[in-house]
Nucleic acid binder design. Structure first.
Lengths: 226, 226
DNA sequence: GAGTAAATGTCGGCTGGATGACCAAAACCG
DNA sequence: CGGTTTTGGTCATCCAGCCGACATTTACTC
């Protein structure tokens, strides 16, 4: 990938766009670009000395393998999101990122390099700081949900959230392009496949939504009422 | 409190000690010191425009009131820890900090001021960033524990952790000064008072520990074996 | 030290939702 | 197109641990 393309990518990035063009050009030199098709694995937690990735295009799943060998979907990330090793502590288990949309583009730096840039660029530092705060909040939220809400509620809130991010509104329904299996959804809301399946069917019976393997159609307002 | 004392406090702080003495002096001017005795409330999430606090001496509990009016202990903090509103999102519920050790000293700045300092001080920014990463990791860990471990294991790990932080080692036991009720412990590990009580008694029967209302005595190595 | 409030102890009933097992329907693939 | 894999559907079983209720002990207050 040529420098101009890199430049353009970074220039439009929500974190990087505070940098001057000279600084951007410098970053371009240390950046590594990567593209992947659906199903391809983008990164492994252990294979490289810690790198940070930013997702330029597409959607990815962050998956972790637990002690028993089960795959747990930890997160779904979209354009602009950061992933990889931000923290020094490297005791993370097997973790990898896999493309779920047809095409994915992302770029990465070595954490050390990124730190050097931060050190020389206070505005970026501040922004990075805020981004982390945001992340912290999100995790805290998830944690609270897990403690106080039952599976049904967690599923409904998950759907609401998803719909607000990626849903296409039509007359009286919201359409979601579904790239997740019930299993995936289950691990995102900390439940089991079977429970998710039967909740989906329950919601379908109640007329709240309809679904196939590739699409979820939410009747407008139906979710809000729950 | 006079400037010299402030200066000294900040000078020894794990975050602030990257600052030059001129910078430190500047921070002293915008800092607010506060002391509290056991049981006194130090801060409310809603009463001031967002401030960051650093704990200088003592131990505090961060407590949140949930929708049903229950008090949930979210965290126990010690010397050097930061608390308050770091994030812009201010939808936090009622949350407050209460002193659990006899004397507590902490200092605070307005978030805006802190941001200004960060903006002018990359080394501090980097350190702050790392600290947040650490926090993120910790929360992630907690989250994972909640999903994969049962209450018994969570309690044991909580005790191990506590012992390693604050335990006094003697010949063949570790002594913990206990300032938490079973209720507090329960909410820290996301369980109920009754369950904690009976687990404590179970562990006592098994000879793993002994306890009164003010002390927990852990037989050395006994916990490790579990 | 009496009286009250807070913390601990104990128990039985109850249930959300995990688990396992098995089948049906799609999707994938040579 | 037929065979294989992946995903979704359904059910019966089971249990950790929550919940309510109540007794007992310890601490706090005046």
């Amino acid at each position: 990938m040529n420098l101009e393309t890199k430049y353009w990518h970074l220039h439009n990035h929500k974190l990087m766009n505070v940098l001057s063009s000279a600084e951007l050009k410098e970053i371009c030199l240390i950046t590594n670009f990567k593209t992947a098709k659906k199903g391809e694995i983008i990164y492994f937690s252990h294979d490289e000395s810690s790198r940070v990735y930013t997702l330029k295009r597409g959607t990815i799943k962050i998956v972790e393998i637990d002690a028993k060998g089960n795959e747990i979907v930890k997160d779904i990330l979209q354009e602009g999101d950061l992933f990889g090793q931000f923290t020094l502590t490297d005791q993370t288990l097997d973790e990898y990122a896999i493309a779920v949309s047809d095409y994915v583009t992302c770029c990465s730096f070595r954490m050390d390099d990124f730190e050097k840039i931060i050190e020389r660029n206070p505005a970026l530092a501040l922004r990075y700081t805020k981004w982390m705060g945001f992340r912290l909040k999100r995790l805290e939220n998830r944690y609270a949900n897990l403690v106080f809400k039952d599976v049904r509620t967690r599923l409904i809130e998950f759907l609401k959230d998803w719909a607000s991010k990626e849903g296409t509104n039509t007359q009286d329904e919201i359409i979601l392009k579904n790239y997740l299996t019930h299993q995936d959804i289950a691990s995102l809301i900390c439940s089991t496949r079977q429970t998710v399946t039967s909740l989906f069917n329950d919601l379908k019976e109640k007329g709240v939504l309809d679904y196939t393997r590739t699409e979820i159609i939410i009747k407008n307002n139906a979710l809000l009422a729950l």
